[in-house]
C-alpha cells in the first residue's frame, strides 16, 4: 500500500506543480484556456489527493494526522479545497496563486518523509481529536487565503493590473476568508477545549501551543470587528491579514521549531 500512496502522492504533486506553472503562464499571456487548464489540473490533483486521504483514513481507521508528514499532507489538502472553493465561486485565478504555491511547498517537503501511518495511541483515539485537527487546518487554510488576498490587494493598490480582481472585490474576498477562517478556527478551539477537559481535567491550557492558538483566535476575533471600522478597511485589513498569517505560521511551525511544548501533537 505505501507504493500506491507514493504513486498517488507523486501524481498529486505533479498536478499542482503543472497548475502553478500554467497559472504563472496565464499571468503573462492572459489566455483563458491556460487558466482553465490550470483549474482542471488543480481539481484533478485535489480529487487524487482526496482519494489518497480517504484510502489512508480507511486503512488506518482514524484520520491520520498524527505526525509531521500527515499534518502537512492534510494541511495541503485543506489549502487545495480552500483554493477551489474561492476559484469555483469567484474565479479568482492569480489571486489564489499563493495558496497553491504554499500547497506545493507543503506537499513537496512532505514527500521525502515516511508516509507510514503510526498506530493510534489512546490519547488521540477520540472523535474530538479529528474535529479539533480538521477544523484547525481548515481555519489555517482560510487564513492563508486571506494572506494571499491581502498581499494582492496591496499589489493591486500600488500597481493596478487587470490580471487581478478589482480592489473592492479583493477586499470583499479578504473579509470573507477572515470570517470563514475565524468560524472554522472557533470550532477547532471549542472541540479542542472539550477534548482537553476530558483528557486533562481543564479546558484552557497555558502550554505554549495551546496558548498561541488562543492568541490566533483572539487576533482574528478582533479582525472580524475591524472591518466595520472605516479606517481599517482595505489597506489596514490587508496588512492585518498578513500579520495574522505570521501569527498562524508561528503557531503551526515556529513553536515546534523554536520552543519545546507539551502539546499532544508536538
Amino acid at each position: 500500500m505505501p507504493d500506491l500512496t507514493r504513486i498517488l502522492l507523486g501524481s498529486v504533486f505533479g498536478c499542482y506543480l503543472l497548475a502553478v506553472l500554467l497559472y504563472l503562464l496565464a499571468l503573462g499571456r492572459t489566455g483563458p484556456a491556460t487558466g482553465r487548464a490550470a483549474l482542471v489540473l488543480v481539481s484533478g490533483g485535489f480529487l487524487l489527493q482526496s482519494a489518497c486521504l480517504a484510502q489512508r483514513w480507511w486503512s488506518a481507521g482514524y484520520l491520520p494526522v498524527t505526525n509531521l508528514f500527515a499534518t502537512q499532507f492534510f494541511f495541503s489538502w485543506a489549502l487545495a479545497a480552500t483554493f477551489l472553493y474561492f476559484e469555483l465561486r469567484y474565479r479568482i485565478k492569480a489571486a489564489g496563486l499563493f495558496v497553491i504555491l504554499l500547497n506545493l511547498l507543503l506537499l513537496g517537503s512532505a514527500l521525502p518523509r515516511d508516509p507510514k501511518i503510526p498506530p493510534l495511541i489512546p490519547s488521540l483515539d477520540t472523535p474530538l481529536f479529528t474535529l479539533h485537527i480538521g477544523f484547525s487546518f481548515f481555519g489555517y487554510a482560510f487564513f492563508a487565503m486571506a494572506f494571499s488576498l491581502g498581499v494582492l490587494f496591496l499589489i493591486q493598490q500600488r500597481r493596478p493590473t487587470p490580471l487581478l480582481p478589482p480592489l473592492a472585490e479583493l477586499r470583499r474576498l479578504n473579509e470573507e476568508a477572515i470570517f470563514l477562517g475565524f468560524c472554522l478556527f472557533s470550532f477547532c478551539m471549542l472541540w479542542g477545549s472539550l477534548w482537553a477537559y476530558l483528557a486533562w481535567g481543564f479546558y484552557f491550557s497555558w502550554n505554549i501551543k495551546a496558548f498561541w492558538s488562543f492568541i490566533v483566535w483572539l487576533f482574528y476575533a478582533g479582525m472580524c470587528h475591524a472591518k466595520f471600522v472605516r479606517r481599517w478597511q482595505g489597506t489596514g485589513y490587508a496588512w492585518l491579514s498578513i500579520a495574522g498569517f505570521g501569527v498562524v505560521l508561528f503557531t503551526y511551525l515556529g513553536i515546534g521549531l523554536l520552543m519545546a511544548s507539551n502539546h499532544p501533537l508536538d
Partner: peptide, 20 residues
Amino acid sequence: AIVLASLATLLAMGGSLVIH
C-alpha cells in the same frame, strides 16, 4: 472591543515569552 482584543493579543504574545 477592538482595542481591548488587540491589547489582550499583544499582552498574551509577550506573556507567552515570559512563560517560556
